[in-house]
Computed example of a mutant assay.
Amino acid sequence: MPLKDVLAACLVMVLWGANFVVIDWGLRDVPPLLFLTMRFGLVLLALPFVPRPDAPLRSVLAVGAAMSLGQFGLLYTALALGMPPGLASLVLQLQAVVTVVLAAAVLGERPALLQWTGVALGVVGLGVVALGRGGHVPLVALVLIVGAAVSWAVGNVLVRRLEVPGGLGLTVWSALVVPLPLLALSLVLDGPAAVGHALTQLTPAAWLSTLYTAVLASLVGYGIWNRLLQHHPASEVAPFTLLVPPVGIAAAWLVAGERLTPTALGGGALLVLGVALVVLGPRVRAAVRVRTGLTG
Rank of each mutant, 00 (worst) to 15 (best):
T200D: 01
P31F: 11
V284G: 03
A9V: 01
A256N: 14
R160D: 08
T292W: 02
T171G: 00
R161M: 11
A276R: 10
A238Q: 14
A184F: 10
V146Y: 04
A46S: 10
G134L: 07
G26C: 12
G274R: 05
R160M: 13
L277S: 08
V106R: 07
A66G: 03
V237G: 06
V177E: 02
V172I: 13
V128A: 06
H231S: 13
S174L: 01
A184H: 06
A198G: 04
A18H: 02
L7R: 09
G221T: 12
V244G: 04
L131T: 02
Q95L: 05
D29R: 10
A264G: 04
W253H: 12
L139R: 09
Q201G: 14
M67H: 10
L183K: 06
T261V: 02
V290G: 09
A198T: 03
V43D: 03
G122P: 01
A193N: 01
E109Q: 14
A250V: 13
P32Y: 05
F35S: 12
A234Y: 02
P138E: 03
V195H: 09
L176E: 02
L74R: 03
A251N: 04
G73K: 03
A105G: 07
V255Y: 03
Q115S: 12
G267E: 00
L243R: 08
G108D: 12
A96F: 15
T292A: 15
T77P: 00
L242N: 12
S68E: 05
